[in-house]
Computed example of a mutant assay.
Amino acid sequence: MTSDRTLIHLDHLTFSDSNVSGWAFRELTNWWGATQNKVPGVERPSGVGAFQRRRATRRSRVISFQARYRGSSAAEVERAYDELAAIGADMPARMGVTTDDGTSWRTVIVEQQDAQSTHNRRYGWVDVDVTADDPRRYGDAEWLTTDPPSAGVGLVWPVVWPAVWPGGGSPGRVTLVNDGRAPSPSSFVLRGGFDTAVVTCVETGDRVGFARPLPEGSVVTFDAETRRALLNGQDASRWLRYRQWTDVPGLSSRTFQFDVTGATGSPSMSGRVLPAWW
């Protein structure tokens, strides 16, 4: 059974489209659909139409909704106003929308919250305007993990037929699937120890490397969206090599190879791509 209900999530607050106590909302605008193309057309001076554009680049997205709080007193409404005003006041916030098709989210900057005076009433309205610098919306996805490549056991000759091929070994690869319809950046978490590491996209040959020893217990993160690396939470982008970042196209997949030198302990790589939509 479906609920036919839409929910907005802004950081830790949830807004319902039903007439309930607490937070509710109306008039959510610009959550779905594509934003304006930034690549201008150039008209042919002596021909029909314009020169053909090879691609489109989308603008950031401005999203708005009206929030309403219904409480037991005007003082409660004012306290709710203060709680909402603290969200995104000095840093980006996460905004999600839940429908019967699931939950998708964006990272947003809160541009403005225009709150009406309560006039001693037990309810009040707030106009909320946010901007998503990345216009795409995302879903969640699982991390896939692999060890570096390793050989299998192999057969011992002469072979007695029918032969049973032994197992073991690892190709050192993960295949990341983007179920959305927009290209999505890939992320990787590398765990030591090793001297150097390279992550290679099998289909394109694009590579991102880390040219610094990573001891056991340390973690470095590659983020294709920010084009940065974090070592135990601190910026380590100066040790990046190649920097050939790869997005996974919509309704497609990419396979990534994990190679290291000077392996110690149990190094591994985890990869993830979030399904993305315009």
Rank of each mutant, 00 (worst) to 15 (best):
A24F: 15
D127V: 07
W32Q: 02
L13F: 05
R173K: 07
N120Y: 12
L274K: 12
V128G: 02
T261K: 15
T118Q: 08
G88A: 09
L251W: 13
F194Y: 12
D101T: 11
G71Q: 13
L231S: 04
A75C: 02
D17V: 03
G124P: 05
S16P: 04
G250Y: 06
G71W: 14
R238M: 15
L13Y: 00
S186T: 08
S46P: 01
L176I: 09
V174N: 04
P267Q: 07
N232E: 05
Y123C: 01
E142W: 15
A211Q: 12
M91P: 02
V260I: 13
F222Q: 02
T2G: 15
G233F: 13
D129P: 00
G168R: 10
L240E: 01
R61M: 09
Q116F: 11
T221K: 15
T264G: 14
N30G: 09
G49P: 03
G169N: 11
C201H: 04
T261S: 14
L230T: 14
D101Q: 13
P148F: 02
T131G: 01
S46F: 13
T2P: 12
S270D: 06
V174Q: 08
P135A: 06
D129A: 09
W161P: 14
R55M: 12
C201D: 13
L190A: 01
D100A: 09
A141C: 09
P249S: 06
R212Y: 11
S18E: 14
V248T: 14
M269K: 03
W239A: 00
A197S: 10
I109A: 06
W23R: 11
R121E: 09
V273R: 11
P135R: 01
W278M: 14
V199I: 15
V97S: 05
P249L: 02
V159T: 03
H119A: 14
R5F: 04
S187A: 15
V273I: 06
E27A: 05
S184N: 06
A34D: 10
N178Q: 08
G22T: 04
P149E: 03
Y69T: 07
T175A: 13
G102K: 02
G180T: 01
E83C: 07
R55I: 10
